[in-house]
């Protein structure tokens, strides 16, 4: 492995990791949001019952 190949490999790894990390965070966020929406719904229901 020499010359320009290593540069392509490194750039590919960096790009992949950056996208992966960003994607992971977006997913975490979506999960949290969904859970919060659900909770808000439950809370609102509880409140209506009272």
């Amino acid at each position: 492995m020499s010359g320009i190949t290593v540069v392509y490999i490194v750039f590919a790894i960096v790009i992949a990791c950056l996208f992966g990390y960003t994607f992971l965070m977006s997913q975490r966020q979506r999960e949290i949001e969904a859970e919060m929406d659900e909770l808000r719904g439950i809370l609102a229901e509880k409140n209506d019952d009272r």
Binding site: M1, S2, G3, T5, V6, I9, V10, I13, V14
Partner: peptide
């Protein structure tokens, strides 16, 4: 570290 290592490899 990964990029440094690959550079070192080359």
């Amino acid at each position: 570290i990964i990029s440094g290592g690959l550079w070192g490899q080359a």
